[in-house]
């Protein structure tokens, strides 16, 4: 039986010895995260795939408007060691571009299309990456960018139900609770015969 804590540590030493890692996070027993520079991603994924991380679990992005950066996240998984590895890299936000990892993981085709649709990242080398996948006929900036306002979009595109004002009029009526309290006070007063 292999010890998975050791597996994670092994991965950290292995990767840090080969690549120039900006930041390493040992998130849990089964999860390790590396932040690397953009140019290292391809060779790193290639290396990890050859060492057993052969499943690309997810590919997505995070928008950081304060830093003016877009962060790409690749998650790969090893079925033998049970360790997820996240590889993160920050790219330019205004003009987000990345080379596709299609030659390494062919399954990234749809993830890249999704990332292009929701974040506007262009993946060079993926012929389908500009095609629409989930949003059909989208006519605004990519919706998962932080500067997109979903409420304004929703109000502009979808009719909102307008409610009549009856609720407010009802609220202006005399409160039944006050009446009830007054009645109860009167009953108490009568019961006590006017005595305190």
């Amino acid at each position: 039986m292999m010890n998975s804590t050791n597996n994670a540590l092994e991965v950290i030493t292995l990767v840090e010895s080969k690549y120039n890692v900006v930041k390493t996070e040992h998130i849990s027993k089964y999860q390790v995260a590396f932040e690397v520079i953009r140019e290292d991603i391809h060779s790193m994924l290639n290396f990890l795939k050859n060492s057993g991380w052969k499943q690309l679990s997810y590919l997505s992005a995070i928008d950081w408007p304060e830093e003016d950066k877009m962060e790409l996240v690749y998650i790969v998984f090893n079925w033998d060691k049970g360790v997820h590895i996240q590889i993160r890299s920050k790219i330019d936000r205004e003009n987000p571009e990345m080379d596709s990892i299609l030659p390494i993981f062919p399954g990234c085709k749809y993830y890249e299309r999704e990332a292009h649709e929701f974040f506007g990242i262009v993946f060079h080398g993926n012929p389908d990456s500009m095609k629409q996948l989930i949003l059909e006929g989208w006519d605004d900036i990519p919706p998962l960018r932080k500067d997109f306002d979903p409420r304004a979009y929703s109000e502009a595109h979808f009719p909102q139900r307008e409610y009549t004002e009856t609720f407010i009029e009802l609220n202006q009526q005399e409160s039944k609770q006050e009446k009830r309290a007054a009645r109860q006070a009167h009953i108490d007063e009568v019961r006590k015969g006017g005595k305190k």
């Binding site: 979903p150 409420r151 929703s154």
Partner: peptide
Amino acid sequence: TINGGIYHDSHAVINQLDQ
């Protein structure tokens, strides 16, 4: 389906089905 419910301010979900 009536007024959008908890998705009333989503970019992807419509608010009023009877429109």
